[in-house]
Amino acid sequence: MQIRLFISGRNYNLAEGVPDRLTLPDGATLDDALEALADVLPEGTRLPASCLVAVSGRHCGTVGSHEAERLRDGDDLVVLAPVAGG
């Protein structure tokens, strides 16, 4: 299955070049997707634990602490590094 991927927030520029879709085995979970995402990030970068994660508009927690979530084909995965600029 495929999911759409969108990375944004702080240091969004570091995610340039990351594919906007991930191909995952059927029945994959949010953890599987985050592992697959880690593999396609530019060398030397990683997702901070404080990044928010949402699946198809539903907030699931953070990269470091989130609910177990089974993904479906066509889901949207948003990963948002928190921003605090005023």
């Binding site: 944004s8 927030g9 702080r10 240091n11 969004y12 520029n13 901070p48 634990a49 404080s50 928010l52 907030h59 927690g61 953070t62 470091g64 602490s65 948002l80 590094a81 928190p82 921003v83 605090a84 600029g85 005023g86």
Partner: peptide, 30 residues
């Protein structure tokens, strides 16, 4: 909140909807 060309907006209704600490359980980097 914002960074670069991105921004976020959260409206909190205390004790009814998620507060900022619910959303950010760990302190993000400064």
């Amino acid at each position: 909140a914002q960074w670069g060309m991105t921004g976020t907006l959260i409206a909190v209704k205390p004790r009814v909807t998620a507060c900022l600490r619910c959303v950010y359980p760990q302190d993000p980097p400064f």
